[in-house]
């Protein structure tokens, strides 16, 4: 059994069987991470480069830790401080790195489609760690893993994605994944932050946070991405927080307990209040913990794939 793809560019390309295989493999890696010795020798002859053209805390540390737990050799590359500032192109940079016998590329880039473009020019397996406003597949996988862990499964579960749907690669990857696995999805936010025709992807659209929270089992609260908003899409952060922010008083008025998620980094007091983010309803830190196991599963399954293609 193995994945149907050579690269993890997006959830869009995966089959439900692929997603299930990744999550089941991640179960075993999560178990490895609970042991006194949290490391297995599986990828000891594999070298992986983490190519980050955009800032990251969690994803980058999580990938690096996943690689180290698998005994792979890792190289970290940040665009700032590299020859990118001298004008080297993406393909040139990657070809130069790969010529030093690197087997896999983990890449984050601010341009949507950058990893897809790269996959047409190199042989190494690519893992997309977030490309512009397109996809962030490993985030969606770890979100699914965390929902499955808390609620026992994905099928038939009601998941709300709240906030900046327009600029969120996490939202798009989550929509693809959850609909493929039979969950129901509602996206909710101000009309200016919800793309037109998004219901074509099989999701419901709501502009009312309270109604959406009352409907769902899980609310994945997304970050307001001011850095990607080139024009004003709402008046002030204060107004956004007033109408679309999630706080304890709102959750307490629902008469049911829903699970709160956030991909991080949190804008505390904007999309999510501290009294919710740090409550026991929140599984935000579980998400981060699960991220390592899920990324180990992705790297393991793709590294196996690479050799299959050769033989």
């Amino acid at each position: 059994m193995s994945l149907s793809v050579k690269h993890l560019l997006g959830i869009k390309d995966l089959t439900p069987g692929d997603i299930d295989l990744i999550l089941r493999t991640a179960d075993q890696f999560k178990d490895v991470l609970q042991r006194p010795i949290k490391k297995v020798p599986t990828l000891r002859d594999t070298t992986i480069v983490n190519l980050f053209y955009e800032n990251s805390t969690r994803t980058r540390i999580s990938f690096e830790l996943a690689e180290k737990r698998l005994s792979a050799d890792t190289i970290n590359f940040a665009a700032s401080g590299s020859s990118v500032s001298k004008g080297e192109t993406l393909i040139d940079t990657v070809h130069n790195i790969l010529s030093m016998k690197v087997d896999m590329v983990v890449m984050r880039h601010s341009a949507s489609g950058a990893p897809h473009f790269l996959s047409r020019h190199i042989n190494a397996s690519i893992v997309n760690a977030g490309d512009g406003i397109n996809e962030h597949p490993t985030q969606a996988l770890l979100d699914a893993f965390s929902i499955r862990e808390r609620l026992g499964g994905l099928e038939g579960k009601k998941v709300a994605l709240l906030g900046d749907i327009m600029h969120s690669r996490v939202a798009l990857s989550n929509i693809y994944l959850l609909t493929k696995m039979g969950a129901e999805v509602t996206v909710c936010g101000p009309p200016t932050l919800i793309p037109k025709h998004i219901e074509k992807l099989g999701v419901r659209v709501s502009y009312n946070v309270r109604e959406t929270l009352a409907w769902c089992d899980v609310a994945n609260v997304l970050r307001i991405q001011l850095e990607r908003q080139n024009k004003p899409l709402f008046s002030t952060l204060r107004e956004y927080s007033l109408y679309y922010g999630v706080n304890k008083a709102l959750l307490d008025s629902l008469n049911k307990e829903i699970v709160i998620m956030h991909p991080g980094p949190i804008n505390r007091g904007v999309e999510l209040n501290s009294d919710v983010a740090d409550s026991k309803q929140s599984i935000i830190l579980d998400q981060v913990q699960n991220g390592v196991a899920v990324r180990m599963a992705v790297l393991y399954l793709l590294a196996g794939k690479k050799e299959e293609a050769l033989s």
Partner: peptide, 20 residues
Amino acid sequence: ITFYRDDFNTSSELHVAQET
């Protein structure tokens, strides 16, 4: 023992891990 195999890079099939 899936993650400890010595044929990860030579075996044609990828082994699916079972519970430890």
